[in-house]
Design a protein around this nucleic acid. Structure first.
Length: 453
RNA sequence: GGCGCCUUGGUCAAGUGGUUAAGACUCCAGCCUCUCACGCUGGCUACAUGGGUUCGAAUCCCAUAGGCGUCACCA
């Protein structure tokens, strides 16, 4: 251990896509740096010309911003160790690769593509490195192949560029996925060739996905959404996603708290809370956490967040916020809303079975018995009186007058106006949302249908 | 296949030689209730297997099995 300022980096290649696993890696690197009052660097690894995607850098930056991960240094953040895009550092890699050739630790290789430089590996012995999560990892040198350092197009390979840059950018802790464990000895050898101090390695277990058949594998397309953007599009709050992802493979010490703001995360984060075994992405848990975030929001904020996901007709539009307040405690993702309120616009098909409810002792006959006077009563309430409070009052008084149990009266009324077993809100809420005219029409229609059975 | 990593309930996970093996999600039951949801209460389900070491093992060691990763002029 030393007292150097902690510096971590997130080094994605510029594909126009932010996999959940990558986001989590970025998050952990960020949390660790910030928890140590250190720096978090964004570096773009675009040494594969064939994979270049336009605007990918902006995409990555915007995604990180959405997730509230703010780089101290990066392509558009400046910093003393730039450039932060590898394709702009070509000359640097070339210089170091040639230095290795001069030292006899690397060699040129001619092929039809041109001239490349390969790293010379020791043929005997073994290379050991320390990983915070896994302890010492040893791999026999004979397992290592002479790898390409500089490609024939002049670009470095990941295995070379990452070592040069991490050293030059004074990265102290390398946080990345386990898929790099087996190539780390090659990197370590490179550090040794140059006589550079080794950074601390932390290899994260992958994020897995569960397929329909129950099988588990690295989270991929077959599991549905796999990127941060996909999840945002589904109507999960960025804060909720980040919070959930933080807990996928990491747990705070000495607390059972699960809902964290970014600042709280920074405060409690520590490397020893990281788990070395793979974690399965679980929508059930995400849904729960997402719901927790919604419940904490003000009605105004929730209404605003839901806006892009909910198209309302003129009538409902004027009651948007009220509708939101009903939806807020029952929603786990914004994209579910539209379906759950469809019945307010389109009356579902008549189904007499829905009127039958054992617990509330309701039958078709009973429904007719209740709906007939209820309709008359509601008819006497004028447009001005059609408010939630007044409706509540009138319906309660009506119920009392019947001498029946509340549930017994409310059930048929709600079914008659919604024709749906489950609704966001009770009858009075529905009556209000529907408006006087529509409510009375629906109720009369349902009553007629019941009588004509 | 070689090499490497991983293995506590369905899922996320506490746990670092002595615990009734936490907690959360899911699921189930009950309460609350104008449905559902919320909230509250309770419940089901776990140390992969086999050997050691030890008075004592989820915790240490060794095998086996399974899963994952890696063996690119991709990262």
């Amino acid at each position: 251990m030393n007292n150097k300022r902690v510096r971590t980096r997130f080094a994605p290649s510029p594909t126009g896509y932010m996999h959940i696993g990558n986001l989590r890696t970025a998050l952990y690197a960020y949390l660790f740096a910030k928890s140590q009052q250190g720096d978090f660097i964004l570096r773009i690894e675009d040494t594969d010309r064939a994979r270049y995607v336009a605007d990918a850098v902006e995409f990555i930056e915007n995604t990180l911003k959405l997730a509230k991960i703010y780089p101290d240094e990066g392509p558009h953040n400046g910093g003393d160790f730039g450039p932060y895009v590898q394709s702009e550092r070509k000359e640097i890699y070339k210089k170091y690769a040639e230095e290795l050739v001069e030292k006899g630790l690397a060699y040129y290789e001619e092929s039809e593509n041109g001239k490349a430089i390969r790293q010379k590996m020791p043929e005997t012995g073994e290379t050991t490195f320390y990983d915070v999560l896994h302890g010492n990892i040893t791999i026999a040198n004979e397992e290592l192949e002479d790898q390409i350092l500089l490609k024939s197009d002049g670009m470095p390979t990941y295995n070379f560029a990452n070592v040069i840059d991490d050293h030059l950018m004074e990265i102290t802790h390398i946080i990345r996925g386990t898929e790099f464990i087996t190539s780390t000895p090659k990197h370590v050898l490179l550090y040794q060739y140059f006589g550079w101090e080794l950074p601390t390695f932390i290899h994260l277990a992958p994020v897995m996905g569960k397929a329909e058949d129950g099988s588990v594998s690295k989270l991929s397309k077959r599991h549905g959404a796999t990127s941060f953007g996909d999840l945002v599009d589904m109507g999960y709050l960025p804060e909720a996603i980040t919070n959930y992802v933080a807990l996928l493979g990491w747990n705070p010490k000495n607390t059972n708290q699960e809902i964290f703001t970014m600042d709280e995360l920074i405060n409690v984060f520590s490397l020893d809370g990281l788990s070395k075994s793979p974690a399965v992405f679980d929508y059930d848990k995400l849904n729960w956490m997402s719901g927790e975030y919604f419940k904490k929001m003000t009605d105004e904020a929730f209404t605003e967040a839901a806006k892009p996901f909910v198209k309302l007709d003129e009538n409902l539009e004027s009651k948007r916020q009220y509708l939101s307040s009903l939806l807020k405690p029952r929603v786990s993702k914004l994209s579910d809303i539209q379906d759950s309120i469809k019945f307010l616009t389109d009356m579902p098909d008549f189904d007499p079975e829905l009127f039958v409810n054992k617990r509330n002792k309701v039958t078709v006959e009973k429904s007719i018995e209740i709906l007939t006077p209820a309709l008359e009563m509601l008819n006497t309430i004028d447009e001005a009186g059609w408010t939630v409070d007044n409706l509540n009052e009138k319906v309660a008084a009506f119920t009392e007058g019947t001498g029946l149990k509340v549930g017994t009266v409310m059930w048929p009324l709600r079914i008659a106006t919604s024709m749906q077993k489950v609704t966001p809100g009770g009858v009075t809420e529905i009556l209000y949302l529907l408006g006087r005219k529509k409510s009375l029409e629906r109720m009369k229609q349902s009553l007629d249908n019941l009588k004509n059975l």
